[in-house]
Design a protein around this nucleic acid. Structure first.
Lengths: 200, 200, 200, 200
DNA sequence: CATGAATGAGAATTCATTCAT
DNA sequence: TATGAATGAATTCTCATTCAT
């Protein structure tokens, strides 16, 4: 049951979708309003009708990109009941991030973190919250796994840190070289880590 | 054997030193010439006397920051003859990156990679070369370790990828949260990974 | 004999009433269409349905404010048969201008005069006509007074100039300081001027 | 002994001089940056090199115009030792305001007061201070006159209010009609007021 | 040489107005 | 008819760079 959107809501949505990959790939500073105009084909006035500033647009773009990210992970979790498989699916999903047409610029959370605090403090805060949420998802997954005896008595936060840091780093490496082999290597490593160290 | 610098060379050097942390923390787009003037206290003309553009200055800043980084690792290698100790020392050194007053903004290679290639293609290329060099250092370290039977018959590139990705990711996590525990966790993980999987 | 207004006419009237104090207090340039939307709560289309431009709206607002002003003076004249009392009543009425909820921004004629003719030449012309009319009211009042021997043989235009300039000036002073004592002082002065110099 | 100005200081000064009549005649809202560029013939960058915002420029323009005004009055006072003559000279000087090439737009204090508080609160505050100073000048003039028995025991503030309000009002009238006869009439009135009511 | 002055392209944003449904 | 959507010119301001003294 899809909600019907007004014309304006659709336009707003379209702007966000078109603009999200821009901000994600080029950053807040690196994306100018004229980039936005170009990619949307809209005049300035229309953009400002829906977003009262570049800041707000960047926020909306981040939220869109992050929602997309989360949905991918939620699906990986949803479709795998066994905890070990779940973690492996998450790793796989993560490693396919750059394939997503909205996320070819990498992980919006990480990109925001790197651009740092001078760019847009509110956005950075949003990134923190997103990362919190995302770490919690892994935390809970592992905790449930421990309850079900599918996982060893590992520290959930530590495992989450390791998984996230490693793949995020690998994604940036892949971006740097424009070569996904770095992701593949890290994925292999993490899979065997999960199986040997985390799985029961 | 200290080379004597002319006054001009010293000024240029000073500019680079003052400006490098700026570019590293705020990125190429995020650093404006007026930031540069402010941090150096120099008039516009003087900057342009030594650097013909912001691009060139950014390049010099990157080179400075990377040289600093490399020196830290070179020292870690130099001071440890045993290969396992070397790798562990590298990991430790890496994890202390944010302590360096010139590198509190994180790893210049990674930051450049994330800002992407719209910002400054030449700079990105430099980052790639730096990363190549850095991976080679690890590669050689491991290869030597294998020769000396201090390492298992692991794939050098894979280990390098894992080490670098993981810590780089952890550094960004630490930046995001302004909390180094994420580095600590990843370091623990990597140390035990090295000892159990890489070390002979 | 109240004329019945259609719904549209009432809407138009309401817009003018809500907008008149805005234009009067902030001026033509200082009042934007979004101010108009905000104060009326109406959508853009509706405003443009009733007024074909901001200019026309400003004109209507001026006319409304001026009509209000004139009615106050007309009443002061109507209710006082003796000429001296009439002039004194006019002075008093004038001095209460800022109390009127539609005129807290001051005298629309004067405000328009000060904003000058770059803003809106037609509006300035309207202000001139309003001032003409207003001066004529005083002129006639005095002339009648002279006929009835209630006034000395003063020059009507001179007295009008003095009265109007003085109070208008005082109103601006009051606005500047947000303090009506400047009006009070000028009023005292003018009353004694009228009684000693103008009255027979 | 004229102070030597640097080139930059001269440019800044020139901008202020060229821009002051603009702001005075058209107001803060009515004067756009492109007006400023046109009248100065300078590019944007140059304006912003010397003034960090339109606000600051407007302030400088006001200060310049007011300084000019004050100097005129100071001269009238300086050149007349007798208090009655002083007041009459002030009135005359006031009435010639519109002749000044920098002040053809009228009195900057009054114009600022009319444009009101929404335009530029700091500017309005400056106008208040200017008016305070100006009232004080008259106040002191009269007080001295009283001491020297050249004036009756009038209330200084009341006389100041009357003089200022009346002429200011007359100046606006003159602007409205583009006809100085309104100033002349008010001047006559005030002169006889001074001689009959204020002078000893 | 050294440096402050000048430059103008481009950034973000607001505006009054017109269009389409 | 009513109204939200679309428009683009104009506004304020920043930037990297070049010039002139």
């Amino acid at each position: 049951m899809t909600t019907t959107l007004t014309k304006g809501e659709r336009t707003k949505q379209r702007i966000v979708e078109q603009v999200a990959p821009l901000f994600n790939a080029q950053g807040y500073f690196g994306t100018s309003l004229s980039d936005v105009l170009e990619v949307t084909g809209l005049p300035k006035g229309t953009i400002y009708r829906y977003f009262e500033s570049k800041d707000e647009l960047a926020l909306a773009a981040f939220d869109f990109a992050y929602a997309r990210l989360r949905e991918r992970f939620a699906k990986a979790i949803r479709e795998n009941k066994n905890t070990v498989k779940r973690l492996l699916a998450i790793i796989t999903e993560y490693s396919n991030l750059l394939e997503d047409p909205y996320l070819y610029g990498g992980c919006p959370i990480f990109n925001t973190a790197v651009e740092g605090d001078d760019a847009h403090p509110v956005l950075l805060q949003r990134a923190r919250e997103a990362m919190d949420e995302w770490r919690k998802m892994i935390h809970i997954t592992i905790r449930n796994g421990k309850k079900r005896k599918e996982m060893k008595q590992v520290n959930e936060d530590e495992v989450a840190s390791v998984l996230i840091s490693s793949i995020e780093g690998a994604i940036v490496m892949a971006k740097l070289y424009n070569d996904k082999k770095h992701i593949r290597r890290t994925v292999e490593h993490l899979k065997s880590y999960v199986q040997s160290t985390v799985a029961a």
